[in-house]
Computed example of a mutant assay.
Amino acid sequence: MRCQACGDATSPEHHECQRCYTPHGQPAITPGLPTYSVRGIGLAARIAVGATAVLYLVVALGPLVGLVMSRQARADNDPDLLIGAVVIEALLALPMVAAYLTAAVLVIIWTWRARKNTDAFPGALPTLGAGWAIAGWLVPFANLVVPARVVAGVARDSLWRRFTPDLVSVWWSAWLVFSIGERVVSRLDSRAYDRLPETPSTDGGYQAYTDYYLGSLLRNAVPAVACVIAAVALIVLIQRISAAQEARIARALPAWPTAPVWPTARA
């Protein structure tokens, strides 16, 4: 006898599957409850998350442009080059912001669908309602904990585990370091930039810009590394959860009968 939820072999010694913990005799999907496809939205979310991480790395390395241009400005005594460095950094940030917003929307939609699917999984034990898959990201202070709890519950109920996968902890820890660290770095950079001479005319003034860009580059290191770790962990989570849910939903679909084969007339 095999479990209808995960397809694993079951034993009459236990009243539930030892892999997915679905009670024996329960269908893969509770009849009458809706399920949602997560394959397409999951793929789109993974692409957007990956693109955001790559573009953020470009932004984090943006001070290299300012570093080179500040040294050239010092050599040529041309302060206009410093304005060009600011413009280039702003242009580098625009694609990253667009990718970030796109990824945020796609991840929220995917999380809501994945969470709604667990309502139809016999044996699942969700602790938060599906609405928190959206509200959890938007409510201040709650957004420091709730999204991780929602994804942790979805991961447990989709990957057939009684404990939260370590990958959820890695993802959320890295995300918090990135999210908080990026804001701190942005404020530090803003304060440091305000202390720079508006129009440098001496070697010391140009050197101040060079030191600023070098410091900014070093400050960006921590959130940049955290961003990559969070992105990779989330991409893997989305892929694994989506594959598990799609496989379970497919097992619940009725097999269409094949067309009858009529005997051919013999000559």
Score class of each variant (00 low, 15 high):
G42I: 08
D157H: 11
D203L: 15
Q245Y: 11
I47Y: 07
R115G: 10
A252V: 12
A152R: 15
Q239T: 05
V107F: 08
L55C: 02
G62V: 03
S158C: 00
L253V: 04
P63T: 11
Q18A: 15
A152S: 13
L94V: 15
V184Y: 13
H14I: 00
P254H: 13
I29T: 14
P95Q: 10
P254I: 06
H24F: 11
T118K: 02
V54W: 11
I180N: 04
P27D: 07
R240A: 13
L176F: 11
G7S: 04
L217M: 13
M69P: 10
T30L: 13
G153I: 01
A99S: 12
I108P: 10
E16V: 02
V49D: 00
I238A: 04
V154N: 08
R2L: 15
A98I: 13
A148R: 15
Q245C: 12
Y206T: 01
V105I: 11
T210N: 13
V59A: 01
F163S: 10
A44P: 02
V151I: 15
D119H: 06
A104V: 03
S190L: 00
L234T: 00
A267R: 11
I29A: 15
M1I: 00
S190P: 00
H15D: 07
V105C: 02
W110Q: 01
P257N: 00
H24T: 07
V65E: 05
T30K: 10
L33Q: 09
S179P: 01
A135Q: 01
F121C: 02
P147K: 07
A114K: 09
L196T: 03
T52P: 04
P223S: 09
D80I: 01
D8W: 08
T210P: 11
W175F: 13
G50E: 07
R248A: 12
A75R: 09
A51L: 13
L237E: 03
W110L: 04
V225Y: 14
V184Q: 00
A90Q: 09
R183D: 04
H15I: 07
V261S: 00
L101A: 14
A230G: 06
A53I: 03
